[in-house]
Amino acid sequence: MKLLSLIHPFLALLLAPLLLGVINRVKAVFAGRRGQPLLQAYYDIWKLLGKGAVYSRTTTWVFRAGPVIGLTAVISALMVLPFAGQSGVISFSCDFVVMAYLLGLARFFTIAAALDTGSSFEGMGASREAQFSALAEPALLLGLAALAVQSSSLSLSDIFTQLNLQAWMKVGPAILLVAAAMAVVLLAENSRIPVDDPNTHLELTMIHEVMVLDHGGPDFAYILYGAALKLWLFAALLVNVLMPVQASNVPVNFAVALTGMFVAAIGVGVVESIMARLRLLKVPQLLVGAAVLSTLALVLLLR
């Protein structure tokens, strides 16, 4: 384990809420508003951490465990992710499957906590989250599998160091397909607009917000922070796919990769500003489409 690989988790823990700020600022600019401060997510988390928590008598330990396990799982998933040409803190064979299912674990406990409240409204959101994430999972895993075939290695760190300019020259179209699938997964997994609207409260079609309605205080701070880290994780995956790092100059690499992260956040903001949310029935089609793109890339690379 190299010391340099510790920089990425540190950056992620520090800067992840800023991505949310950038997205909100882009949306505000599009709407002609001044918008909330860039650091609003930090203020929110700080405010929530200072509050006390209220627990309903119908809930059990599952409800309290949900946010903690969710945040822990996402932070653990960040550890295997390479960034800016540096390998992940931990790296072993098939760690991409571990990453995908650590996120699955976080989702499972969020869903379980939502069901634990006994509210039928939260159960509805939980069932939608389960349905859509089940469809997003093949898109993510098949896309990563395609990249694994391309680099003929099974650990994320090796996969992304093999993804250099030569690979782009050789199988560029396939890598672009994977990137498109990843972008859809990024939007779906972080409940962004074509799938879910992060601004809606108490609306019948929302997904993620509805599951966390009953959480408050520090628990909700953990959920917000976990969501920001998850956004960072998927954006970092996308940046890794799209921006092969060649220069051996470490500071330049980090600067380029960080710029990529904020460009990704701006991209999400633009998508949110110019698109309407899809009808709920159309969402599975979008996710199946992403899975099809990943499969196509896999077929192209396996040939």
């Binding site: 020259m169 199988v171 560029g172 179209p173 396939a174 089609q285 489409g289 099809v292 196509l296 192209l300």
Partner: peptide
């Protein structure tokens, strides 16, 4: 040997595949 025209052609062919898949849906 990978030439640039071949990369373009691969891109074109992948786009043909995509139009086919979109047409199916």
């Amino acid at each position: 040997m990978i030439s640039l025209s071949q990369t373009w052609m691969d891109g074109l062919l992948v786009m043909l595949m995509l139009t086919n898949l979109i047409l199916l849906g």
